[in-house]
């Protein structure tokens, strides 16, 4: 089999293994149902991996209940670990798929939508695994593996194109900077958005005083919010650089650094929304929930720019079509 063949096979394999990982993480969430319902009051401290369902001040829990709870927590732990193990298995396979794709094309593997999505998702999973291995933070597992499954699934079915060289306008160093920065910041924005989703879900549950199941095992909303912020704070300057590098490239390719092309415009809209997010976090009355909603709007704009504009609107950037 040649590189292209290896790449295609491993890419599909990775998508399937991510699916299993997602199922394992879903089972982890499901198994946590009914546990931790009387979790310690909102705002108190809960570690992610420590697991033990916060032995709160609740004297009447009889032994059978406690035993059932312990068994459930063991199951949660087991499913969670399998999820991580499967992700650890899928990740190198995914990496091989991306690298062999580059070898097959004899260039960096980010010349079209298929390659861009698969590379970006590799970065997302890398960030997740970093959090798991270095900080013991497993709680993004479900959302990350779901995103990886859906994303890679779309990539291999809808966006797929065979290996081909680049069109002349992409032969530019700035294009490489542009696209690497876009893939990295895209990955970080997505991680930030996933954390923001969990923040909103947990925050809502806390407000209703019904933090049970897996939610109770998540870190505090404050910590989730902090992780979301860090992801965005990392992504935003990179995204700024992405747009700048794109503009410099456009100046070389077309003699104008900005032309209000649909793709350029949506990148700017995305940038402005994230600038809004950062402002929101520093504005009384906007931090917390509203900021998280802005983060989600930002990621929607990002995806729309990436998929919607490529498929719906024609512009100079539709070079990749798919």
């Amino acid at each position: 089999m040649d590189f292209a063949g290896v790449s295609n096979t491993t890419m599909v394999t990775a998508a399937v293994v991510y699916l299993f990982a997602a199922i394992a993480h879903a089972a982890e969430w499901a198994a946590a149902r009914g546990t931790g319902a009387e979790a310690a009051p909102a705002g108190s401290r809960q570690e992610a991996l420590v697991g033990a369902g916060a032995p709160g001040p609740e004297p009447v829990a009889d032994a059978r209940d406690r035993e059932r709870e312990e068994r459930a927590l063991l199951r949660v732990e087991r499913y969670g670990r399998s999820g991580v193990a499967l992700t650890l298995l899928a990740f190198p396979v995914h990496a091989i798929a991306v690298v062999t794709r580059g070898l097959a094309a004899d260039r960096f593997p980010w010349g079209n939508m298929y390659e861009f999505v698969s590379t970006s998702l590799l970065f997302v999973v890398a960030v997740h695994l970093f959090l798991v291995l270095r900080a013991g933070q497993r709680w993004l597992g479900l959302l990350v593996t779901m995103l990886a499954t859906i994303g890679l699934g779309l990539a291999v079915t809808v966006f797929y194109v065979d290996v081909a060289p680049l069109v002349p306008s992409l032969h530019s160093t700035w294009f490489i900077f542009h696209i690497v920065a876009a893939a990295l910041s895209g990955a970080a924005f997505n991680v930030g958005a996933l954390a923001s989703v969990l923040y909103l879900v947990k925050d809502r549950a806390e407000r209703r005083g019904a933090v049970g199941g897996y939610l109770a095992k998540l870190p505090s909303t404050r910590q989730i919010d902090l992780l979301a912020y860090r992801a965005h704070a990392f992504a935003f300057p990179l995204w700024t650089f992405t747009i700048a590098a794109g503009a410099i490239w456009a100046q070389y390719a077309w003699g104008r650094f900005w032309g209000w092309d649909p793709k350029e415009t949506m990148s700017l809209v995305t940038w402005v929304i994230y600038a809004g997010y950062l402002h929101a976090r520093a504005t009384a009355g906007w931090r917390g929930t509203r900021a998280a909603v802005l983060a989600l709007l930002g990621v929607v704009a990002f995806w729309f720019n990436f998929i919607g504009i490529n498929l719906l609107v024609s512009g100079l950037h539709s070079y990749a079509g798919i």
Binding site: P262, M266, V272, I273, T283
Partner: peptide, 21 residues
Amino acid sequence: SMRTALTLLMVLAVAAIPGAL
């Protein structure tokens, strides 16, 4: 005020969208 800046940023984002579509 910060709140106005935030609002204007959001208005700018919304206003730029029709030109992309």
